[in-house]
Design a protein around this nucleic acid. Sequence first.
DNA 1: CTGTTAGCGCGTTCAC
DNA 2: GTGAACGCGCTAACAG
Lengths: 309, 309
Amino acid sequence: MTVSRALNGRPGVAGSTRQRVLAAAAALGYRPNKQASRLRTGKPDGLVGLVLATLADPLIASLTVGVEQTCAENGARIVLASSNGDPATEGDLIADLVARGVDGLIVVPAGDDHTHLNVGQRSGVPLVLARCPPAGVVADCVVVDEARGAYRACRHLFEQGHRRIGFLGSTRSWAGSERFRGYHLAHGHAEVAVDDRMVCRAREVAEVAENAARGMLTSADPPSALLVAGPSSLLGVLRAVAAQPPVAVVGFDVECADVVPYPLGVVSHDSVELGRAAAGLLFDQRRPSAAPRQVTIETSLVQTGPAPK
Amino acid sequence: MTVSRALNGRPGVAGSTRQRVLAAAAALGYRPNKQASRLRTGKPDGLVGLVLATLADPLIASLTVGVEQTCAENGARIVLASSNGDPATEGDLIADLVARGVDGLIVVPAGDDHTHLNVGQRSGVPLVLARCPPAGVVADCVVVDEARGAYRACRHLFEQGHRRIGFLGSTRSWAGSERFRGYHLAHGHAEVAVDDRMVCRAREVAEVAENAARGMLTSADPPSALLVAGPSSLLGVLRAVAAQPPVAVVGFDVECADVVPYPLGVVSHDSVELGRAAAGLLFDQRRPSAAPRQVTIETSLVQTGPAPK
DNA sequence: CTGTTAGCGCGTTCAC
DNA sequence: GTGAACGCGCTAACAG
C-alpha cells in the first residue's frame, strides 16, 4: 500500500497524500503491527532477550540498567526472564525467546557448563554471555577482571607491609576461582609463599567462613590480612573479626560498605557499564565467522574507614 | 498441517504420526514461530509490557521480581522499558509496546497525570498502574497504603508518649501527600493539634531537610519525634540529629536500616508482593465494563536499634 | 506516484 | 486421520 510507504517514510509518495495518511493514522490511533512486519521482512525488530540467573541479586539485576540504556539508544526493547539458577529452565527460556523472535540474547548463565545455550545458536541468534566466559559454546562475553582485582588487592596489602594474607571464599564459581588465581599470582610476584592453612575454599556459608577465620586468627602464626572472595563468607568473617580492627579485610562487590562498622577494602566494578558493554556487543554486529570477542571490565579498589595498621 | 495439530497436542492425530512429528521437530530443533501464530489466531501470546519510571531506584526495580514471578507462573514474559521519569517517553513506550503486541501493560507512572496512558487503552490492552492510583485514565492499580503507614507510625509515637511530632518531606508526589494525610489523621484521632512550624513540605533535598530539622530542634518548643516522608529528607535529618538520639526518627522504605548509626523506625512494604499483585490483576482478566479495581499493599513498622526515650 | 499481486509461518475450515 | 485452500497484517516486486 501507499500507506505503508507513507508511514515508513519511504520515497515515492506525494507530499499531500503522505499528509492525509499521517493525519488519518493519528486520528485513528493506528499503529502498524510490528510482528506482521517482521514476519514479512525477516528483518530484526529490536527485541533483545535478557536471561538472568537471578533477579534477586542486586549486582546481577543492576546490569539490566545498562542493557536497557544501550537498547533504548538503539530503539530496542528487552524481554526479561529469570532462570532462577536452573540451567534447564535457562535452556527453555532461551528456546522460548528465540521462538518469540528476539534479535539477540544476553545471558547471565546459571551454571558452569553452557552447552545448552546452543539451542539459540542454531537459530542464528547472536549470543552474549555476561559475568563469565563461555564454556561449551562459542559466544561473545563480558567479564569482570576478577583475577586482577584480587591481584591488586593483594599487592596493595603487601605494600602496606602485610606478609600473611588469608583467603576465604568458594572457588567453585568462575569469579571465585579467578579471585583465587589472582591471589596466587600476587603471591608469586611478591615472592611470598602461599600457606595452605591460610586458605579456606569451602562453599559460601557464613558460619563456615566465620569458623575458618577464627581458626586462622587464633593460630600460632596468624594472618594480618584477609582476602574474602564471597559475600556470605564476608558476613562470617566480619563476625569473626568483630568491631576491633587488628586485621585488614578486603571483600568484593560490597554494597553499603561505608556503613559496615569495620574498615574495609572493597574490590568493585561498574555493573551498569557491564550491561552496556554486553548490549554493545550485540548491536555491534559480528561477522558470523569471526573469533568470539571478550570485553573485560576493570575493577577498582576502595578503602572505607581508616585502614588498620 | 498435521504437524500443527501434533505439536499443539490437538486431537485428530494418530499416535504414531504424532511421535514421528515430535521426533523430527526435536531433531531439527524446530520451534514454532509465535509471532505468526499470534498473527493468525489473534490470541494473547504471553507478553506483558512493564514500563518503569526508573530502573535506578531499587524500590521500583524490585517490583520487577514480583512481576516476573507471576508472569513465569502464567507462561508469560516481560518486555521491560524505562521512561526515565519522562511522561512523553512513557507515552511513546506504551505505543511501541502495544504495536509489539503485548497482552497487558504494567506501568509505574513518571508523572502525576496519566491521560497519555490512554494510548494503550484504545487498543484494548489492559492496563495496571503500580505505586499510584490512576489520574486521568481508568485502570486497575496496586498501591501502598502510605497514609495508614504514616498513621500507624504517629500512633506508635503517641503511645510512646510523644506529643510533638515534626513532619519533613515533599508532599508533591502521591506517596508524600498520602503520608502527610496519615500524619494529619493520626493527630486528629489523638486530639493533638498539628503545629505548622513542625512541618516542612519542601522538595526532596537533603540540605533543605537538614536545615529545617535543625530549625525545629533548636526552637523554643522542639519536637521529640520526626516523621520523615522522603529518602533525601531522611539523609538530611540524620545529619541534623547526628549520632546522639534525643529524638525519635521514623522514615519510609529505608534500605540497610540496621546499619544506619542511629535508632530508626522504618515504615516499609513488600515491593515484590506489589509486583505480584500487579501482574495478578492483569492475568485475572477483568470484564471491560467492570469498575476499576484497586489492590492495597499494607505497610509494616519496624524499629531498629534501641528506641530513644 | 499509486495500486496490484504474492507470500512470510501459522491455524482454521472443510474436503478427502 | 490427513491435507488443500485461505487469510491474519504487512511489505517486495512489479504493473499501471
